[in-house]
Design a protein around this nucleic acid. Structure first.
Length: 476
RNA sequence: GCAUGGGUGGCAGAGUAGCUAUGCAGCGGACUGCAAAUCCGCGGACCUGGGUGCAAAUCCCGGCCUGUGCUCCA
């Protein structure tokens, strides 16, 4: 089954055919680092992390570029408020981004270009747009003139120029600036007081929001590239603007072969937003659960769907994750990884998993397959079937680990188990002594005393479970 | 208003025509002094009105509801 992905421009799932055989160039719009990253950023990063992992697994050589918009109104405002340099604000939030992404097992992109390091390329692109007759200089900057390429309007949103004119309810009728037309958008903003700025043929200023991505994708991926991604909230105006800029500058279309967009996050049925008070940063979430539990939660729905996020969902994911990790760890401590290719069960799990991923990266279908292999592994552990245990952990390592990114390194898992065993042996004598007392109490049907001992153990963090072959205990 | 997605059991969420999705929760059972864990089993859904088909959650038409975008936003 070949890979199909949903392309926003054609509004259908299309079979993926790269421009260059065996290679993929993918550009993903990254964050504006004006505050610590929130779970919407996490969802986006995770979606594209898995997309890139799957493309690589499928044999493509992938060049993955994600940018940082490290100059912007909000960054400047915060810097002025704190009386520090704007780059300090950007850098501290970029550091935060890298840190939390790494905790969630997000593989780094191949490059992270920044606006402030791309100024010459941006200027030359604007220059080209002016000489092509697509942009004009005015009193407060340089603007792209939509009327110079009206046929390009609405390729992603399906809207036409007329629709926007009629439908916007008067909100956008005034230009309020040096624009010729309210639909035009800024390529270069002339510097105001107390603003960082760069020299340009049009005076001191800074780039408009959209031009950076056109310039950076051109620089890193060339005049045509395969995939452009980002959050669905960027479709308009940001990605529409990119189409105008890139295609008019380069004189060909399409520059981007496939546009893909991830869905937003809802919290308790409402859009997550600061004003509603239902806002989660990534650090909020990972103070409650393990970062990989958060990862599990955010990839549990296909990337295009809005995802429901709340405490219940987090807890649910946490249970699933614990089940995966503990079963995998058990298997890992029993034997080495072997090959899963000779196991009928695992081979069919492979087919289901791959079909799901090839159908527009359906991680939900993939996770169902992981769950079924976890169940299978438990059975094999029960039956002491070393060959299948070995094959199953290998399968999980490849798919749950390698593709979905849900497993920490084996050494970490084994070290955890080892640590837990040490902690257990440190209290073993004490626990066994109490369990003996409990046994005596139970033998004489002194249930009150037996339960009292079990409660004491609970308070020590020891969980006791009676099994047919005697009590089993573990640490919380 | 315009555009673009979506409406599946208590919850999350697959499924583009015929065969149990799955997980959590619930119920019943096994095992238990009890509890927990585990295992087995069960029930329960396809927004609505038409249409096409031997057969529709799945295709077509209408209606209703809803998310998102139209302003900075992953």
């Amino acid at each position: 089954m070949s890979l199909r992905l949903y392309d926003t421009r054609s509004r259908t799932k299309r079979i993926f055919e790269p421009l260059v055989d065996g290679e993929v160039g993918i550009y993903v719009c990254g964050i504006t680092p004006y505050s610590p990253s929130h779970i919407g950023h996490a969802r986006q990063a995770l979606a594209f992390d898995i997309i890139v992992r799957w493309l690589r697994y499928s044999g493509f050589k992938v060049n993955h570029i994600t940018n940082f918009t490290d100059i912007d109104d909000k960054i400047i405002a915060i810097a002025n408020e704190e009386e520090i340099d704007f780059l300090e604000v950007a850098n501290r939030n970029i550091d935060d981004y890298f840190e939390v992404m790494s905790l969630m097992n997000v593989l780094p992109a191949d490059a992270y270009p920044r606006v402030t390091e791309t100024i010459p390329e941006i200027i030359s692109m604007i220059d080209k747009l002016i000489s092509n007759g697509n942009a004009y200089q005015s009193s407060d900057g340089v603007y792209f003139e939509i009327d110079s390429a009206p046929e390009k309007y609405g390729q992603l949103t399906g809207q036409t120029l007329e629709m926007v004119q009629e439908g916007a309810g008067g909100r956008v009728t005034e230009t309020g600036s040096g624009k010729k037309n309210h639909r035009d958008f800024a390529l270069w903003k002339s510097a105001k007081e107390n603003e960082p700025s760069w020299d340009s043929p049009w005076g001191k200023g800074r780039p408009g929001w959209h031009i950076e991505c056109s310039a950076m994708s051109l620089e890193y991926l060339g005049e045509k590239f395969d995939i452009h991604g980002g959050g669905s909230d960027l479709i308009f105006p940001h990605h529409e603007a990119e189409i105008f800029q890139s295609e008019c500058c380069l004189n060909h279309e399409p520059v981007v072969q496939y546009w893909i967009h991830n869905g937003m996050i809802n919290v308790d049925g409402e859009k997550m937003s600061k004003s509603l008070g239902n806002f989660w940063t990534i650090r909020d979430a990972i103070s409650k659960v393990h970062p990989l539990e958060l990862r599990y939660c955010l990839i549990n729905a296909p990337y295009r769907q809005p995802v429901e996020f709340n405490d219940v969902m987090l807890e649910d994911s946490s249970n699933h994750y614990q089940r995966l990790i503990s079963t995998y760890g058990q298997g890992l401590s029993l034997c080495d990884k072997g090959s899963w290719k000779n196991s009928d069960f695992l081979e069919s799990a492979n087919i289901n998993f791959s079909n799901g991923m090839n159908d527009d990266f359906n991680t939900r279908v993939a996770i169902v397959e992981v769950q079924s292999v976890v169940k299978y592994l438990k059975e094999q552990i029960e039956n002491d079937n070393i060959k299948e245990i070995s094959a199953s952990i290998s399968w999980l390592s490849d798919f749950a680990g390698g593709i979905l990114g849900l497993l920490p390194d084996d050494e970490i898992i084994l070290k955890e188990i080892e640590k837990n065993n040490q902690a257990k042996s440190a209290v073993a004598d004490l626990v066994n002594d109490l369990l003996n007392q409990r046994k005596i109490a139970r033998d004489s049907k002194n249930w009150d005393r037996a339960d009292q001992i079990r409660n004491e153990l609970n308070e020590m963090g020891v969980i006791v479970e009676d099994s047919p072959s005697g009590p089993i205990w573990r640490l919380e």
